[in-house]
């Protein structure tokens, strides 16, 4: 089996400033890749091309047919129940079984008839994940899917995504600006900066990766430096003074 995603020479610019500058990217089937970058580094633009939302003239782009994307906002149709939203992802006659399985996968069976506007942030994002997974994607694109969630829900969602990836084995491209998230989940991390890949790191730590693991922490510090954040020592950050 050859590469699943093959992009060569992808450039995009809005006006004068290049957003993507001759990017090349290859993703193998079943690979979990994280794309790190600051705001405005071009990561969302790249993702839109991968999702097929934007055209990529003059670039060589090979994409798998079955792709799904989960956005930062759940983007559920508020006028459709959770189950009907998930069913939007499949068009065949066997949808209901697939929908039930997808909802069970994200532990949302009990909310299948709920209206999206009554869901909590985490539930809504799990529904969006189910809607993406029901398509049995070869490539799952995640566009900062946990950024709007609270810290506890985010940790739980990260675990869920990793678990579902292990079960279904799609190739995953996770776009994030959270270094810890990238290190915790991905097998390969790409750092995008001003439209170019600045760094590529293979993460060979065993799973599950625990927070505070020294190897992971070292990698995080290194990646943060790559993104322009200097942390000489985690513990040197002064504690806020307590007033009593």
């Amino acid at each position: 089996m050859s590469v699943l995603v093959d992009i060569q020479g992808l450039s995009r610019d809005f006006g004068a400033a290049p957003v993507l500058d001759r990017i090349s990217l290859a993703i193998q089937p079943g690979e979990f890749v994280a794309l790190l970058g600051r705001s405005g580094s071009g990561k969302s633009t790249l993702l839109r091309v991968l999702a097929g939302l934007d055209e990529a003239p003059a670039a060589r782009v090979v994409l798998p047919k079955r792709r799904s994307i989960v956005f930062q906002e759940p983007r559920l149709m508020p006028w459709k129940s959770v189950a009907d939203n998930v069913a939007l992802g499949v068009s065949n006659a066997h949808a209901s079984g697939a929908v039930s399985r997808a909802l069970a996968d994200v532990e949302l069976t009990h909310r299948r008839d709920a209206w999206p506007l009554t869901l909590s942030g985490g539930e809504a994002q799990r529904a969006a994940l189910a809607r993406a997974l029901v398509r049995e994607p070869e490539l799952l694109l995640l566009d900062e899917p946990f950024a709007a969630l609270d810290a506890l829900t985010r940790l739980r969602m990260q675990g869920l995504v990793r678990e579902l990836w292990r079960k279904h084995r799609p190739a995953v491209l996770l776009v994030t600006h959270d270094v810890g998230e990238a290190v915790a989940l991905a097998d390969r991390i790409l750092v995008l900066d001003r439209g170019r890949f600045r760094r590529e790191v293979a993460v060979e730590l065993p799973h599950p990766r625990r927070h505070g693991d020294p190897c992971a922490a070292a990698l995080e510090t290194e990646l943060l430096r790559e993104l322009g954040v200097e942390l000489s020592d985690h513990h040197s950050i002064p504690e806020p003074e307590r007033t009593h």
Binding site: A51, G52, L53, R67, S68, I69, F71, E73, R75, M77, L88, G89, S91, R131, R135
Partner: peptide, 12 residues
């Protein structure tokens, strides 16, 4: 527009 975009990514 974001919902229309989501619909497109779902193959509608």
């Amino acid at each position: 527009r974001k919902l229309i975009e989501a619909g497109r990514t779902l193959g509608l």
